[in-house]
């Protein structure tokens, strides 16, 4: 986890350490864990993405290929992060995949309205979890093309 920030491919925003570890392991199992940065709340995520705060020195032009965003976050919520991201002219092209415990979340609709790229319910079963994460990583990291790259 000491890779250069300007080569980050995945930004994982997750406050629960266990979930973060499981996600990283799932990605790892799918060989997709290179250049992953894990931030623990929405404020940090925004700092990273807009190169502010502790990430002020980061090269803003090089953005992650995908943001894995938990909705329930301390300080700034996932929905707020999504809103800021999607309302920024440049950052809006970054694919955002919402990872949440349940699709019953009241924020699902809001997320779609704001322009989320995917919405994933984290299965309880680890096998399924690995499968789902693998599929999304494959898609967003390897198959998806984003403009001006």
């Amino acid at each position: 986890m000491t890779q250069r920030n300007d080569e980050v491919e995945i930004l994982l925003v997750e406050d629960t350490a266990a979930d973060a570890e499981l996600t990283i392991r799932a990605l790892k199992k799918n060989c997709l864990v290179n250049n992953l940065v894990w931030v623990k709340d929405g404020a940090e995520a925004l700092d990273f993405l807009f190169a502010t705060g502790v990430y002020a020195d980061r090269d803003k032009t090089h953005q992650p290929k995908v943001v894995l965003l938990d909705l329930r976050l301390p300080r700034i919520s996932g929905v707020e992060v999504l809103r800021r991201l999607k309302s920024d002219e440049r950052a809006r092209t970054i694919p955002v995949v919402v990872l949440t415990s349940s699709k019953e979340d009241v924020d699902v609709e809001e997320c779609y309205r704001l322009g989320v790229n995917s919405y994933i319910t984290k299965p309880v079963s680890f096998d399924e979890f690995v499968k789902v994460v693998g599929e999304l990583g494959l898609y967003w990291l390897l198959l998806n093309k984003i403009p001006n790259e």
Partner: peptide, 21 residues
């Protein structure tokens, strides 16, 4: 109720995930 059931999933996932690991 929703919150409970929702929040229960996170630790459950951890239990399941780490048991699997």
């Amino acid at each position: 109720s929703y919150s409970i059931s929702h929040d229960l999933r996170t630790p459950l996932r951890a239990i399941a995930g780490f048991a699997r690991i």
